[in-house]
């Protein structure tokens, strides 16, 4: 277990470990110094890794903690700050991302995704070709959603703070496939719609960021929106988030020409009740 997840390391232990390090340079470490280094395998002030992939920003455990807290408050104050939501997800993802990776490793489709590492961009998705698909197919509805929202798959924030190449890809894939979830569930891009989707994702992935959004996001809603969330969206998310197939294991790119209803049936997701 790496020290960076042990956020509970006390200041005392930290100081002791730094002292232990300076002592260790001069003589063979005594038992007590070795014990002290237990709590922080390395100093909280130095990044644990070098640069691992394009866009990677190695940060120290201390910076990570500050960034996590800071991004959490900023994202709460302004949910439209996608970069802050992204930073929150990355700084708190750690072992939860590893768990998602393990679930992907257990599934043939998930393994194929990890092996081939497909990226979702407007180029790889061939949006123009998708526009030619008949109405009601997954691809057509997906492009319709993108056009309605005036977004593109290329506007996703790249991953910066995940200290593993493979887990960074998992994070990236999770982020890139988010728009497919909207198409699949029929949830609108409104604050309560997004919160409903976060509940759904929380049950799917267990990521702490989805949990924080699920619990603290509703604080900003009006009472009308909140009652709608509690009456319709959350019960729906609880039911289908846990019973559907793990959506991280879905190769969406290959489902584009199938009718939305068929995709929903196969993945075990009913569309969210429209209110």
């Amino acid at each position: 277990m790496s020290a960076r997840t042990i956020t509970a390391a006390t200041a005392n232990a930290t100081i002791a470990s730094i002292r232990a390090r300076s002592l260790a340079l001069t003589r063979r470490p005594a038992h007590w110094t070795r014990c002290a280094t237990l709590f922080t395998c390395r100093s909280p002030l130095e990044p644990p890794t070098g640069k691992l992939y394009e866009g990677h920003i190695p940060i120290s455990p201390l910076q990570r903690s500050i960034l996590a807290v800071g991004s959490a408050f900023t994202a709460l104050a302004n949910p439209l700050r996608g970069d802050m939501v992204a930073a929150l997800g990355e700084t708190t993802g750690g072992m939860f991302l590893a768990r998602i990776r393990d679930q992907m490793l257990l599934d043939p489709e998930g393994r194929r995704i990890l092996r081939e590492r497909p990226k979702i961009t407007s180029e790889s998705m061939q949006l123009d070709a998708l526009r030619q698909l008949p109405d009601g197919t997954f691809g057509r509805e997906y492009v319709r959603f993108l056009d309605d929202q005036q977004v593109s798959p290329d506007t996703r924030e790249p991953v910066h703070f995940v200290d593993s190449e493979e887990l960074a890809y998992v994070m990236q894939r999770y982020r890139e496939t988010h728009d497919f979830y909207h198409t699949l569930t029929g949830l609108p891009v409104t604050v309560d719609g997004e919160i409903a989707l976060k509940w759904f994702e929380m049950l799917q992935t267990g990521l702490p960021m989805t949990m924080l959004s699920s619990f603290f996001g509703p604080l900003r809603l009006t009472s009308e929106e909140r009652s709608r969330l509690h009456e319709y969206y959350i019960p729906w998310a609880l039911e289908y988030g846990s019973s559907s197939k793990l959506l991280m294991n879905v190769r969406w790119e290959e489902w584009m020409d199938r009718p939305v209803e068929e995709v929903q049936r196969e993945l075990g997701v009913q569309p969210c009740p429209q209110v």
Partner: peptide
Amino acid sequence: WRASVQDAEKGGIN
């Protein structure tokens, strides 16, 4: 395949 991924991960960690 998994061993190569694991080795790549290990390379970056001091």
